[in-house]
Nucleic acid binder design. Structure first.
Lengths: 349, 349
DNA sequence: CAACGACGTGGGAGCGCTCCCATCAGGGGA
DNA sequence: TCCCCTGATGGGAGCGCTCCCACGTCGTTG
């Protein structure tokens, strides 16, 4: 009775899960040999390998993860941390796409995805406890603000991290970002190409690098087209629909003659659209509109919104790959990757 | 050197995590006593408890999760399984809301959320391996089709399961669903109240219970209003925008005189909206439209869409709570919970 | 005044792995 | 023929915890 593996009762019946030891007995080999086979070590003869494989199949053996983690001090799990506030704010499919990419990559590497939505400061601290409890081999961080100390703290704990986006131009922690400057430039270039003269922008909150970068792209685009920048044509939003609406109102008040708007997100573009309709401006006849994200709302807007697409899922995959490399020690130090964006033209300009 | 806890190197420096043993030594008590304090056992004197708490704080002790799982055979982790295909199909925020609810509830109970997106049949099988590896204490299943054997298989493994939605009227596995029949009835009652006479419906795929239930609600609503059902007013979609569009086209062809449509999802309603526009029908003047989900696209449609809201986040919370109860053994057998839906009236009817 | 619970406590015995060292055959070179 | 090296294998020693039994030490009861 003492060597039957762990058991669980199901409707009174006992289901028992075999252990390494039992597989070894069945295959007529030692524990170490079975372990070697399971972990794909080359130091096993072909014959033995086959015998062990047979025993594994016959018993339906699956290694116990907890025991592996304890003995080998690695968990085969990765945490993805998403601040709850952001999950509401952002064009919502963003995080689903990101999760999809991360998940796909981790599945290929046979790693588990631990999803952590962080709501409060208290939960943040609890998250650091999890890390200390050695539940994960590495951490992926989505949507970090400019002054967030978490990435550095995690690194201090000796745990590999990769971020989605960066906190500033000179980000010391490994990250994967999309080309936000390029996004702004592409949008402006397109509007200029359509003959627009007075191009405004609705930006994100200035404490986020992504907002500053898109604004930078907008300014660069204007400069390249020989336009003079005008502060009156820049209004700050906060990545919400309401924010987009009021930013647009203030733009219309200050510069009623504007004929195009680059909104730093589709959601803000939707708000801007509403403000334009209020003011009796037609899109695209009177004012052309471009957003960022190419989210489903862009397709559904009236008229459908031209938008700069980010390769979100690909960012997720890249982050996961970088992190796994870091965990396994095959990583260049502090890598940064910036993925290209792409303008998707629809009827709004 | 042999009793210093596990170590990890960080920039060449060594960070060591204390063990129970070390806390015990520091507090001048035995290992068992520290364990009791950590786990909140009442069988410890107040004085000892305080001494241990101090030692824990001084050393920054955090219990090693792998060791706990191995010795205690529980992982404090729950898996949430989402079929990848569905994640694309559905009104996308659906799963984010669900995740949010689950995550909130698990965080309160100090459990981890393991997110599993299942893409292929192969990944499904790998998931069963994970279960066998005892990585999780229980499983939450989202979006199960009528013939899915997975829920039963998991139960056979002796692992607690709760599903989101059900496979049929007589679902043997614990589940949390929303009142889909009530949703259909509410939509029809509203349309009837607005004087609509020829009310059509675009349904989901008939192999999903949720689709049949909403159709059932539609039929019940008609019956309650004294309307005679007409098969020509029923067209099957597949929960996609395209599906909604072609279903609407066929409805218009068969019953050009229809004056209202109940679409079984917002996404299909968006497709139907497009088909109506094509056909020159105005919404709501010629045809009134109601959807289900109350997703962001409903608000953004033109005109904004009346829709039946499901309490998605609340479903997530309820599922998590039920599962945790099941895991801890404090659960009534095979509980079912059906949460109410709510009509959100906008300009589309 | 002895016997007896109750309570608080210490620590042995695992949980199922990985790591690593010792062992054992063979085969080739001196 | 003997020795050494290589490749394959067995199994001890943990990993850090929980479970549980055994051991005082009291206050209480007959």
């Amino acid at each position: 009775m003492s060597d039957e593996g762990s058991t669980a009762s199901v409707n009174g019946r006992q289901i028992s899960r075999p252990t390494l030891e039992q597989v070894a007995a069945r295959a007529g080999v030692g524990r170490g040999t079975v372990s070697r086979v399971i972990n794909g070590s080359p130091r096993v003869s072909e014959q033995t390998r086959a015998a062990v494989a047979r025993a594994v199949a016959e018993l339906g053996y699956v290694p116990n993860q907890a025991a592996r983690a304890l003995a080998g001090s690695r968990t085969d799990a990765i945490a993805l941390v998403i601040p709850e506030a952001e999950a509401r704010l952002f064009a919502e499919p963003y995080f689903l796409d990101l999760i999809r990419g991360v998940s796909a990559e981790l599945a290929e590497a046979d790693k588990q995805l631990l999803l952590t939505l962080v709501r409060t400061e208290q939960e943040r601290q609890r998250f650091e406890q999890y890390l200390a409890a050695q539940r994960v081999d590495g951490v992926l961080l989505a949507s970090v603000h400019g002054d967030d100390p978490l990435p550095d703290r995690i690194r201090e704990l000796g745990i590999p991290v990769v971020m989605n986006g960066r906190r500033s131009e000179a980000e010391p922690v490994p990250y994967v970002d999309s080309d936000n400057i390029g996004a702004g430039r592409a949008a402006v270039a397109h509007l200029v190409g359509r003959g627009r003269q007075r191009i405004a922008t609705v930006t994100g909150p200035p404490d986020m690098y992504v907002a500053r970068a898109r604004l930078g792209g907008y300014l660069a685009g204007l400069a390249e087209a020989g336009h003079t920048p005008d502060e009156g044509l820049v209004a700050a939003g906060d990545f919400t629909e309401d924010g987009g609406r009021s930013a647009m109102r203030s733009l219309l008040e200050r510069r009623p003659e504007l004929d195009a708007v680059f909104a730093a997100s589709d959601v803000m573009a939707a708000g801007a659209r509403a403000a334009l309709r209020e003011a009796g401006r037609r899109v695209p006849e009177d004012v052309a509109l471009v957003g960022v994200d190419d989210s489903p709302v862009a397709r559904l807007m009236d008229p459908p919104l031209t938008s700069v697409r980010q390769p979100i899922e690909e960012m997720g995959r890249t982050m996961a790959r970088m992190l796994l490399d870091d965990v396994s020690g095959t990583l260049e130090d502090t890598p940064k990757r910036v993925l290209p964006t792409e303008l998707v033209v629809r009827e709004s300009c």
